[in-house]
Design a protein around this nucleic acid. Sequence first.
DNA 1: CCTTGACCTTCCAGCAACTGGAACCCTTAG
DNA 2: CTAAGGGTTCCAGTTGCTGGAAGGTCAAGG
Lengths: 132, 132
Amino acid sequence: MNIGIASERAGLPPKTIRYYEDIGLLRPARTDNGYRDYSAADIHRLRFLQRARSLGFSVDECRQLLSLYRDRNRESADVKAIAEAKLAEIDRKIAELASLRHALRHLVEHCSGDERPDCPIIDELAGEGMVQ
Amino acid sequence: MNIGIASERAGLPPKTIRYYEDIGLLRPARTDNGYRDYSAADIHRLRFLQRARSLGFSVDECRQLLSLYRDRNRESADVKAIAEAKLAEIDRKIAELASLRHALRHLVEHCSGDERPDCPIIDELAGEGMVQ
DNA sequence: CCTTGACCTTCCAGCAACTGGAACCCTTAG
DNA sequence: CTAAGGGTTCCAGTTGCTGGAAGGTCAAGG
């Protein structure tokens, strides 16, 4: 199966698929003319990657998850640990964004947003504002 | 004032300050020996950048804000527009992370996390799970 | 048989926003 | 005189792709 079809089936752009091969996430066969030739198992692997990436796992975490996937003797705790670490990371990011949002919202609410030059947002950025 | 002191005063690493100069965000004087020489105004500018960056503005948005800062005839609406766009972007990111968190949380809760190999997280990633 | 177009290949560069490191210069204290 | 602790430049690497150039391959149509 050529990369175009694989791309459709996996829901990933061809460029991304080649990139994943470059960094060693999969190694499809080649036909005589040098074209990549994807098997059903390759597609499976690509879909696995697509799902894991869209769940926020880094490429390196995907690598770990793939090797756990192939390991018939894995302990589910190993997988859970990765997922939980990712969950904690997502929580941290959400908290950070929420606090950012809070500060920015405060500034925006105090700015008249008209044709006059007085602007509490600029004042705050310049270090003269009332928000710490 | 040397870059080390400027770094302390501005709360930015020297590397970052040099980088900001590289991309044209400021242009400090130089002393005879070639060292950068920061004025009080330079420090002010650096602190402005530090605050704006930590509020989530991109370097390019910082550039716009800086030019609005220097423009005595600016309209506060211009600044407010940038801040509001950033706020909307933050909201989008939070929503995306929240949905990610939801999906991941669901998976983690269904994984026993013990020494057995059965793992709903892996199953889902492999496309055999019950979560869409 | 030739061409056209849609594929495919490789490699190189660039995005954002720094960060690390090498190789070197300047200044000052012991 | 030397060593430490500044400073300088430039190059490379980070993450996860993405765009583009230059060229090979293949099937269909004139």
